[in-house]
């Protein structure tokens, strides 16, 4: 995965500032992602990690800077247009649709043609059905397919969300704290899941659980106060005195 050519660039966040009336959640932040890469973004609370996701997916709009996905500026597009170009996000709090069955949650995500008049039917095309079955299988929720998503346990909801993100067929997956509220066993399981995703897709993971980050064994970008601080392997970042001062020092 290392040493990718420039042409493999899939996402470029270029000097982005997000200004919440004086408070800069992102302050001239830049980073790039190559196709097929798995990247972890860490940083203390308030470093701007979730704001980074919000910016890429179009939930907040940068006052300066650009977001470029596959060579196209996307930071002025509506959310659904950004998703249609191949980016999907898993939110920090599980955002499954509680009154729909697990299968219907995934079927919505797997839908390729999202225009309303194409929804006037109940048949699901074979390729979408296959994507749903595959996503169910990979997160181990096949036996729970018909229950209402609102009745799932917390960990199961997180996995369902990861499965939904997978089922969209997006090329770039943004996973915001996929292990929030999980125990060690569930966390390991989630790490395996994400490692599996990395074979075919570009994945950006946000987390602050260092044991989870170590299991992912992916390059790490460290943020601090809305700015880029460091980038490197988990070991390099751990050994860096500047990182330790702002971040690891608080938790270690």
């Amino acid at each position: 995965m290392s040493g990718s050519a420039i042409s493999d660039l899939i996402l470029s966040v270029d000097g982005v500032t997000i200004d919440y009336s004086g408070f800069k959640a992102l302050d001239g932040f830049s980073m790039t992602l190559n196709r097929g890469e798995t990247r972890v973004v860490i940083g203390p609370n308030g470093a701007g990690k979730s704001t980074l996701c919000d910016t890429i997916i179009g939930r907040v709009r940068p006052s300066t800077g650009r977001v470029i996905f596959k060579g196209e500026e996307i930071h002025r597009l509506p959310e659904q247009a950004i998703v249609a170009r191949g980016i999907c996000r898993k939110f920090q709090a599980p955002g499954v649709l509680p009154t729909l069955s697990v299968r219907d949650n995934l079927a919505l995500a797997a839908r390729r043609d999202r225009r309303w008049w194409k929804s006037l039917g109940s048949g699901i095309p074979a390729d979408e059905r296959a994507a749903v079955d595959e996503a169910l299988e990979s997160v181990g929720l096949t036996h729970r397919a018909t229950v209402e998503a609102g009745t799932l346990a917390h960990g199961e909801k997180q996995w369902l969300e990861i499965a939904m993100v997978m089922a969209t067929g997006a090329e770039l997956l943004l996973l915001d704290e996929p292990t929030a509220g999980m125990g060690p066993a569930e966390t390991s399981r989630t790490a395996e899941l994400i490692l599996g995703l990395g074979d075919t897709r570009t994945v950006l993971v946000i987390d602050h659980d260092m044991s989870f980050v170590e299991q992912l064994a992916a390059p790490v970008t460290v943020m601090h106060q809305g700015k880029f601080l460091k980038q490197g392997s988990v070991a390099e970042v751990r050994a860096d005195p500047e990182v330790a001062a702002v971040y690891l020092g608080h938790t270690a």
């Binding site: 649709l97 009154t99 729909l100 999202r114």
Partner: peptide
């Protein structure tokens, strides 16, 4: 299904790529 989904989480539906 989508109508119920939008009722329960309109933003979630947007972030699945639907308007």
């Amino acid at each position: 299904i989508l109508l119920r989904a939008a009722r329960d989480g309109e933003n979630r539906v947007r972030f699945l790529g639907y308007n």
